[in-house]
């Protein structure tokens, strides 16, 4: 039995796992992945750009904190399919529709985490910086932001991973990255296509999470002084054993 025969038969037999599918449709898979990545990246970046001023506003003016948190939570409650559909009259069948929906979803997590991060900055650190003559802008940029980074990055990781998963729903308007392949595959009962696109989607999320974790470690070298003590993984194991 030649490899050629085996490879072709997996497409014909509609197998779940099919190397021939990956080989023959590599261009399609690449295009979908590229669309998936850029929609996610643009959404998360815009989300950050919107969440940041909102979090600062909520902090500076406590009377805005309630409405800002309430509104972002309200948006998060709306089902993704409904959110995309409600944006249809505004954006039509476009990637802008998907990006806008994803931005609105990311706001809840990002605003909350930025606020939590800024709140956790020790008052002494602020006082010291003020005593050294730091203005509000420099205080935020050089003292508060770095100290808020771990919470901010935790939020960014959650938002990115969720956004990658949610992007698939964009298939509703044909702009769902790998979701388009899943949508197409389920209509034509093409098992290899659905499984490959789904696995790629989860892989994308895992890779993004690891990359952001790396970025966080790079940006916050001082936090590793603490982790030099017993690794977190070990304490969990000890707990399980005990």
């Amino acid at each position: 039995m030649s490899t050629q025969f085996v490879a072709q038969s997996c497409l014909a037999a509609n197998d779940w796992i099919c190397g021939e599918y990956v080989r023959t449709r590599s261009q399609e898979l690449t295009d979908a992945t590229v669309q998936h990545v850029w929609i996610t990246v643009v959404s998360v970046l815009i989300g950050l750009a919107v969440a940041f001023p909102l979090a600062l506003l909520a902090r500076a003016e406590p009377r805005f904190a309630g409405p800002v948190l309430g509104l972002t939570t309200l948006l998060y409650t709306i089902p993704s399919l409904a959110m995309f559909s409600l944006l249809l009259p505004v954006f039509g069948l476009s990637a802008a529709l998907v990006v806008t929906g994803l931005v609105l979803y990311s706001l809840t997590i990002l605003v909350r985490n930025i606020m939590a991060g800024l709140e956790a900055v020790p008052e002494e650190a602020r006082e010291t910086a003020r005593g050294m003559g730091y203005g509000a802008g420099r205080l935020l940029w050089e003292v508060e932001l770095p100290l808020a980074l771990p919470a901010l990055m935790a939020g960014l990781r959650i938002a990115t991973v969720s956004t990658i998963a949610l992007t698939t729903v964009g298939a509703l308007v044909g702009k769902g990255g790998l979701g388009n392949l899943i949508d197409d595959g389920v209509q034509t009962t093409f098992k290899a296509q659905v499984l490959t696109a789904s696995v790629l989607c989860v892989l994308l999320a895992a890779v993004a999470d690891v990359l952001l974790l790396g970025l966080q470690r790079l940006l916050t070298p001082w936090t590793r002084i603490h982790t030099a003590k017993p690794a977190p993984g070990r304490t969990v194991k000890e707990k399980v054993a005990g």
Binding site: A165, G179, I182, G185, T189, S198
Partner: peptide, 28 residues
């Protein structure tokens, strides 16, 4: 007081897996 890692990891996995993909896989 056991199984903390499980509780955290299952939550992370739940976020990373697209709902649409799972539904599509079930339908095949």
């Amino acid at each position: 007081g056991k199984g903390g890692a499980l509780a955290v990891n299952i939550s992370n996995a739940g976020r990373a897996i697209p709902v649409f993909a799972v539904l599509a896989l079930f339908m095949l």
